[in-house]
Amino acid sequence: MLRLEGLKKRYKTGDETLKGVDLEIPDGQVIALIGPSGAGKSTLIRCVNRLVEPTGGKAFLGDLELTSLSSSKLRKARSRMGMIFQEYALVERLTVMENVLSGRLGYVGFWKSYFRRFPAADVHEAYRLLDRVGLMHMADKRADELSGGQRQRVGICRALIQNPDLLLIDEPTASLDPKTSRQIMRLINELCEERGLAVIINIHDVLLAQMFSQRVVGLKLGEIVYDGKPDGLTPEVLTDIYGEEDWEATIEKVEDEDGEDDESGEGGEDGENLEENAALGNLT
């Protein structure tokens, strides 16, 4: 469970990006954080694992207060929080396997990790996760040989092998095409359900947010302006979050839950992709 109490962040430039955010996420809940660029979505999740140092307020992971930890305790706490990045942020010149195993760095000493001697259980788990996301055969490929969707799946494995209590996900689909975006979101959802994780997903795409979350939080200029069910996102609410726009096309009822399991992009789904692109276009 994650709890934020009046979390604030003011950058050196003087911009107050977070103006005291209160938020509670119980285990097993996937929340989508939406809002325009500059609303503070990225800052919010980076303040949780303190990649960005908050300037006020508190964050608790279970009973542990994250905001006051010393740097060595912070490392231990970070290993309980998995993070997935917008541009995948894989170390491109390392192999897929090394990237996945790097999720265990918080648990393994320096020399062991330097000589790539990870415990057998970690290696086993890494293979299991790679197999789970369908990348078993890529284990010894270098990360820069992979496609965008494949890289993001490696990123997911890296976060999950940490065996986290909480997942922080920053724009997981921003660099992916609509179809791959859905596959990735579905994968994240399934995996979190399997483990009962608390999850925050920053996302630009309102349609995806509605499809793949149980709760939506709208952020605007560092403040929460909406917190509720996905289907409560009416045109009025979206106007409040993003500003004036014709929202009807964006929130029309989504019934796209048929499996899109095959990887190849060809087939009779062009029409559907176009529709999604139109929806994406509305938000950018």
Binding site: T95, M97, E98, L101, R116, F118, A120, A121, V123, H124, A126, Y127, R128, D131, R132, V133, G134, M136, A139, D140, R153, Q183, R186, L187, E190, G259, D261, E263
Partner: peptide, 20 residues
């Protein structure tokens, strides 16, 4: 290759060496 289906069920190795 299926994304959503669970793994192939084969046994997973316990060790791994970085390819030279």
């Amino acid at each position: 290759m299926s994304v959503s289906s669970p793994g192939s069920g084969q046994p997973f190795p316990n060790n791994w060496r970085k390819p030279p």
